[in-house]
């Protein structure tokens, strides 16, 4: 008698406690998980359309504004002197001059404790940007601008994760705040950038010509994946894009 009633009371107590505990925890949950540092302020500090507003509609820099390297012609003809400076018309800036700056070699964000080796990458077989195989390394789009170039975006991109490696350092990119410092080293030269925005953009909505622009102000674009992971295609549906401007 005492035993059964005691059991009943115990059961009731446990059930009540669980319910109360769960409810309490549940109610505390939104406050804990809606940690503003992970989302809204970034979005607020971000141009929602993302990418520099002065990106041109066309990824075309002055087509042909470029350069006939006279040196090539000269070398073909021997020491050919200064002939060949047109007297009529308006001379065009020689945009095709190859950057003499060194390629980036190292990428670091001190506040997040990230240091990564930079590997020069081109275009993969599927037409997307090629990436370093390991999430431990970050790829630099070698056809685009270099740190220190007067125009265009230096694009660095790396894997968020990979089946064998696990989660890479770039998973921390979403924790960047406006004004955080990113350092890119090219050989012995250090280039410092200040973060202006961090945005997660659906891949279907990403402005690729803006992301990879070779004209406009010099900027650093750091890219990884984000959003939802499709278990069948093994792809994420969004890119996290960090835009940072050089600190002079």
């Amino acid at each position: 008698m005492t035993l059964t009633s005691s059991r009943r009371r115990v059961a009731a107590a446990v059930a009540a406690a669980l319910l109360a505990g769960t409810c309490t925890a549940w109610f505390t949950r939104p406050a804990a998980s809606a940690n503003p540092a992970d989302g809204d302020p970034f979005r607020a500090s971000t141009t929602v359309t993302t990418l520099p507003p002065d990106d041109p509609a066309l990824p075309t820099p002055p087509a042909g504004s470029s350069g006939a390297p006279p040196s090539g012609a000269r070398s073909a003809s021997g020491p050919a002197a200064k002939s060949g400076v047109p007297l009529l018309g308006r001379a065009l800036p020689n945009a095709a001059e190859k950057s003499s700056l060194p390629a980036p070699t190292s990428f670091s964000i001190a506040r997040l404790g990230i240091t990564m080796k930079v590997r020069a990458e081109g275009v993969a077989g599927d037409g997307q940007m090629a990436l370093a195989p390991s999430p431990a390394d970050i790829g630099w789009y070698r056809y685009g601008s270099r740190p220190g170039d007067p125009a265009g975006a230096t694009v660095l991109a790396g894997h968020l994760d990979e089946p064998d490696y696990g989660i890479g350092p770039l998973a921390k990119l979403v924790k960047l705040r406006q004004g955080d410092i990113i350092t890119v080293t090219s050989g012995t030269k250090k280039f410092r950038y200040s973060v202006t925005s961090v945005t997660s953009i659906k891949k279907t909505a990403l402005d690729l010509s803006g992301l990879f622009t070779r004209v406009g102000p010099p900027l650093l674009h750091v890219v990884t994946c984000g959003g939802n992971f499709d278990q069948e295609t093994h792809h994420y549906d969004a890119n996290v894009v960090v835009i940072a401007k050089p600190i002079r």
């Binding site: 087509a63 350069g67 037409g127 997307q128 789009y141 994760d161 990979e162 490696y165 990879f212």
Partner: peptide
């Protein structure tokens, strides 16, 4: 050399795990 005919890669597929 005439430049400026570059186009952007088709995307950045940066996570497979």
């Amino acid at each position: 050399t005439v430049s400026g005919m570059n186009s952007a890669p088709g995307g950045v597929n940066a996570g497979s795990g």
